[in-house]
Each structure stands twice: as C-alpha cells, then as structure tokens.
Nucleic acid binder design. Structure first.
Length: 230
DNA sequence: GCTCTAATAT
DNA sequence: AATATTAGAG
C-alpha cells in the first residue's frame, strides 16, 4: 500500500520551475522491466517450471486478451513482463485498456528507500507496447495531421492512465520517424540490400539483421521502424 | 492559464 | 534508443 505520491522531485539543475502537476504517474518499477531484458544467466539458476507456470499462464493468453481488448492482461499495457511479442496488433485495437494499476503494490520490494532515508522512489517509464502504439497510430490517423495533438490523441485512445505528456513524448518521436521515412525514402541507416531473412518466426517478418541477432525469437520492444508502418 | 512543440535531460 | 522533463511560443 505504499503510495508513491511522496515522490521527491529532485531539483534539476538550478531551474526555478514549480509547476508540476501532481497527477499520479503510474508505471511499473523499471527494475522489473530491466531485469527482464538483461539477465544473462538463464542457464544457471533456472527456477522450476512450477514457479513459472502460475505467472506465465494467468488466465487468458495475452494475445487472446489483446484480441478482445479485454482483460487482466491489459494487452497493450503490460510492460515487458508479459511477452509483448505476442501482441503485434489486434483487430480491435481501439478498445480501452489500461497500463496503470501497477502502483498498487509496488511497495513490496522497495527496500532501498528505507536505507537512504525514504526518498528512493523510482518511477518506471512507460512502455509503448505494439498494441498501445497501434492504438496511438490509429488515433493519429483518424485525427489527421491537424487534429493529431496530444490531448485529442489521449482522448481517442481512451487508455486509462495514459497522460498527455506520455503521448506528447511519443508523438514527438513518431513525427520524427515519419519525417525520416519520407526523406530517405526508407530508413537510410541500412544498406538497401535486403538481408536474407532466416526463418525464425513465422509471425515475425525478419526485417533487419538485428532480427537475425535475435534469433532466439525475443523482441523486447519493437521500435518505430518496425512498429510504425501498420 | 492551458496546450503544443522543440529542445534537452535521464 | 526510448521516454521524461523543461522551456518557450501560441
């Protein structure tokens, strides 16, 4: 029940700004997410399957939940805990979902603040899962170039807990991506030669050599190059 | 004063 | 690189 509302806004660097809206940020602990991506020791201390089962098999498979836009899975919202790789996009991707509800119990593992004096509240960053991004893109396209402003987008997406700031930030990047796409014709960071796609996953069109690198099939997050063009 | 956006920070 | 935060403009 630890409510992270006592967040300590550490003073930036001598900026005298005092207008922080106290809207709650709800995000998961970044540590949890980070741990997901970076555990190199899989083979050492693998927990028994019995431990994993209850976690990986909630009630409904994430993809299914996503398809129906329902559910505890919160398809679009689950950070990296749930395999976002299964949620490329859903047919009905504009139903509301939520990505908060994480702040409810995040106090469970918080121990460090006790040591440092109670000001160790960390805020997790939001994760734009493929589903969320898809909703985002749909909203943007529906609103048109002129209407696609953060506020409207947030409204259209109707995702609980999604803030205007979240969208604004994402939108900024998304626009950059669009610009770049138009300019170089394609993502000009890679040679026009099409790398021979080794069959990793049928559902994943291997697009970049990076995918080849990820031949274990795990895509932590699909960035704009891969997400954007829907 | 609010929202948008570009710049900047983490 | 992805997201957050700030700063300035409209």
């Amino acid at each position: 029940m630890l409510s992270p509302r006592v967040v300590r806004p550490q003073p930036r660097h001598g900026s005298a700004s005092a207008g922080s809206s106290s809207s709650r940020r709800h995000m998961v602990d970044a540590d949890a997410a980070n741990a997901r991506g970076g555990v190199p020791e899989w083979e050492v201390g693998l927990p028994s399957a019995a431990e994993l089962t209850p976690l990986s098999q909630p009630l409904i498979p994430p993809a299914l939940a996503a398809a129906f836009g329902i559910g505890p899975a919160d398809a679009g919202a689950i950070p990296s805990s749930v395999d976002a790789r299964f949620l490329h996009d859903s047919p009905t991707s504009h139903l509301s979902s939520r990505f908060d509800d994480y702040d409810e119990e995040e106090g469970e593992g918080e121990t460090e603040d006790a040591a440092t004096g109670g000001r160790g509240e960390k805020k997790a960053r939001m994760v734009w899962t493929p589903s969320l991004h898809h909703q985002f893109v749909e909203a943007v396209e529906h609103l048109g170039e002129k209407g696609a402003v953060p506020k409207a987008i947030v409204r259209l997406m109707n995702v609980d807990g999604l803030t205007r700031e979240n969208v604004a930030s994402h939108l900024q990047k998304y626009r950059l991506y669009l610009k770049r796409s138009r300019h170089g014709g394609a993502i000009a960071t890679q040679p026009p030669q099409a790398p021979p796609p080794p069959p990793c996953f049928p559902r994943f069109a291997a697009q970049t050599p990076q995918d080849t690198a990820n031949r274990n099939g795990y895509c932590p997050f699909v960035s704009f190059e891969k997400l954007g063009c829907d």
